[in-house]
Design a protein around this nucleic acid. Structure first.
Lengths: 265, 265
DNA sequence: CCATTAGGTTCCAAATATTGAAACTCAGTT
DNA sequence: AACTGAGTTTCAATATTTGGAACCTAATGG
């Protein structure tokens, strides 16, 4: 039906998963009473949902503190998701090479509900930061990877994505209107790369390129991040080539990619 | 009702999540027909479950190939889980130090349903392997971290965990009986560290220490992995000190750990 | 020290969503 | 043209979910 209501979610499963999201959003262990008002569910119902999620190990309940936090089953499942549904495994080699070649922090991201979902990363120096970065979400309208992806979205999906942006002025260079953003997106399409010139964080700039599949759909983006005090704008722009090249390689790899055969006894 | 059928799991949510696990276990995109026999559910029911999961972005459905794979929402959620329910954030500094000091691959793991769940890792050299390692599960009976944790489980939970082990002889040194394992666990308790001397993979040895909370419960384990052709047994044993030390530090950090305060406008 | 409240938990009849056998659709075969 | 296998939809029967209200505790405070 054309009921533009919020047909929020389907069935018990949907409602329960919404609660899971809610708990995850807190970013810290939460108590029943903190969730209740935000959930908009009757006490008894929320209670049952939390119980179920906890029994299912989707949430971990801390007896002593009486708090709920996302459970380890999610980590297990996500490993699977990351390994088979993300661009990360396919892009691994390209990421390694690019990281070695230019020695800067690089990110691999995908678009997820209008937001940027980072799926892999290489740090300039440090050993890792793992998951600490993979799985993280960020805004699309003010990051290099975000804009690179938005720029190549078909109009309907773009409109939808834009409507979900919050347009918070993180810095005084942040684009804060759909119009300004659309202008930039047009430029990005022409150049083939996106710039985030301190739009998200002061002192941080990055250059990003979209990863386009054979049929022209955006399937992700890759970016190099630098600090303005160690890297000039020209130096950053000089990276456009390598970044676009890497994006193209990942795209090619993704088109070829077939799942490695598995078999278990 | 008094139909003591298979009350396998709770409600629709439980049954749906079981299907999610099932899909994840395949380790590759799967088609409806492949899932059906393993699910033990009526066609229509399985179909609805998959639909729901896909709509919820817990599964990604590939239109062209008609396959289901774990979805990106899991990656988002897992980030949250990892950041707040795992030992990883607390152990970060200790991991970094240990990695720097001994320059070998180190793992941080937790026990999850009788299996080892790796939650963090530092590679000897390479930039990363990310998620590729975090979220991975492995056997408990033949890995250093696994045995270190089993050794400190209270009897009831140990018995339960042991009953879940598959005791596959990965190498000719693998302990393949509960009795042999229990012997080793006793030794581990005495020494304070566990050894995996090519029990899981030929040419790979590791030394691991349990991470015990203030009240004596195992909350995880940490290990150093080496290859037998670059490191002698004595050299490996010499790492017992640093590993135990690191474990103790993580334990201490975990006991102190309070969640950093958050607030959003 | 009892009264009061706030955070949790349990009940249970009514309302609803789930169930799954069967029928159906849409390729690809034979 | 009839068949087959994979995937999708239907729909009445029925098991599940629902949530208001009662019920437990600790805590809090007067």
């Amino acid at each position: 039906m054309t009921t533009p209501q919020r047909e929020t979610s389907d069935g018990t499963v949907g409602r329960t998963l919404a609660v899971l999201d809610l708990v995850a959003e807190f970013g810290r262990p939460v108590r029943f009473a903190e969730i209740l008002p935000k959930a908009g569910l009757p006490k008894a119902t929320l209670y049952r949902f939390l119980q179920t999620l906890a029994r299912q190990d989707m949430l971990a309940f801390d007896d002593s503190r009486q708090t709920y936090a996302p459970g380890m089953r999610l980590v297990r499942l996500a490993h699977s998701a990351w390994a088979q549904s993300s661009l990360a495994p396919v892009a691994q080699d390209v990421m390694d090479h690019l990281a070695r070649d230019i020695g800067q922090t690089i990110h691999l991201a995908q678009l997820d509900n209008g937001a940027v979902l980072y799926v892999d990363k290489r740090n300039a120096r440090q050993p890792v930061e793992m998951f600490a970065q993979s799985g993280k979400v960020g805004p699309a309208y003010c990051t290099g990877v975000g804009k690179a992806m938005l720029a190549h979205l078909p109009e309907d999906r773009l409109a939808q994505a834009i409507s979900r942006q919050s347009f918070h002025a993180h810095t005084d260079r942040t684009l804060t209107t759909p119009a300004a953003l659309r202008d930039d997106l047009a430029r990005i399409r022409e150049r083939g790369y996106a710039l985030d010139d301190e739009e998200h964080e002061v002192g941080i700039a990055c250059i990003a390129a979209p990863i386009l599949s054979g049929n022209g759909r955006v399937i992700g983006a890759i970016s190099v991040t630098t600090t303005t005090d160690t890297t000039s704008r020209d130096q950053l722009l000089a990276l456009a080539g390598p970044v676009k090249e890497a994006a193209a390689q990942i795209a090619a790899a993704a088109d070829t990619w077939r799942f490695p055969e598995h078999k278990q006894a």
